[in-house]
Design a protein around this nucleic acid. Structure first.
Lengths: 190, 190
DNA sequence: TGTACATCAGTGAACGCGCGTTCACTGATGTAC
DNA sequence: TGTACATCAGTGAACGCGCGTTCACTGATGTAC
């Protein structure tokens, strides 16, 4: 049966939001179109009324994920709070609600250019935002921001790849957080 | 036809080596057992004479990848040389010959515990080795080593996820390298 | 050392299954008058 | 405002395909005597 235009948009949003979480949890290849649509409350056939292909969904859902996480970043009062949230056990255990870079970087490297472009835009925004939050603006702010982002992404991802409960899993998060916070203080003083 | 015991071992080695490269290039799910065996010069049916399942191959091939890369690390004269090699464009463009952490962390986070355990061992060794190479041993060596490893892995992975040729792709590698080298010098002086 | 037989790595057809995608159908919504 | 018809989002069966795995078969290797 046909559905109101507002409902169509709302349904598309629902699929997009579910996809952005599921992709981060299971990877692009780990989510079947059928499973996705079921999780969104539909049958699989309707998928192609909203998206050309699974590939084009990947790009759209990744963009949605970056949007989600950008909002989450904005909510943080300052850089230390942002770091604590990013490198938390909660974030590690709920990749569907956490950073797309940590969850989908490797997947994206094997995706077509369109997906990579979306990834790059989101990453650029993340770097820029962290750069702006750095109090010291000594020309090394960009370098410092990139140093923070690569460590955040690396630590979160590595922590997920290690067996649940292994000391190394928590060490990676905590040590990265402590190290980053120390650096921020040193820069403030210097 | 039956084959000599030496030949059997050699064939198994070949499959393992090909798998360790292919998995790093295309991910665990991106490599079909048939493709792997063809690449190794066999037909697919013989696979199960060597491995219980694709999953058990994943663990064995990951271990092989860590072994490869540990040898490569040993070849580096000092830490700066190791960093230059790790964060090179060549390493980024040939994931099959580069660090398994950067290529397979996300994949491993979705694999069974056995695979994660292998991942953790390889990562621990990498951290330990870099820690030993740090001249300053001020009790922060472990923290410093983890800071380096997370940055190396994060930068390499992010550089691969960005569109080929984008300025950000090279910037991530170069900035991470420059930043890490500066830190090493500062620690030497301090 | 030579012979007879058991073993088993590699082959390629076959299996069941899940995937992305297509399509005829339905019926409420949107539109033309 | 009311009516007649076209539209099209959602449904669920069906498709072709590639996957991991199994299996009967082959014949050189390994072993027992």
């Amino acid at each position: 049966m046909r559905i109101s235009q507002a409902q169509v948009l709302e349904n598309r949003e629902r699929v997009l939001n579910v996809a952005s979480a599921l992709f981060r949890e299971k990877g692009f290849d780990g989510v079947a179109v059928g499973d996705l649509m079921t999780a969104a409350g539909f049958t699989h056939g309707g998928f192609y009324n909203h998206f050309d292909s699974k590939e084009s969904l990947a790009a759209a859902a990744l963009q949605r994920a970056w949007l989600d996480i950008a909002k989450k970043r904005t909510r943080a009062r300052d850089l230390p709070e942002l770091l604590k949230s990013y490198l938390s056990v909660a974030a590690r255990d709920a990749p569907g609600k956490a950073c797309p870079a940590a969850a989908l970087a490797a997947d994206t490297s094997r995706q077509p250019r369109a997906v990579k472009t979306v990834f790059a835009h989101g990453l650029e925004e993340m770097i820029r935002e962290i750069q702006e939050r750095l109090s010291a603006d000594d020309g090394l702010a960009r370098e410092h921001a990139i140093g923070l982002v690569t460590r955040m992404v690396g630590a979160l991802m590595l922590s997920r790849a290690v067996p649940v409960g292994a000391p190394l899993a928590e060490e990676l998060l905590r040590t990265t957080l402590v190290g980053a916070l120390r650096e921020l203080k040193a820069a403030d003083v210097g």
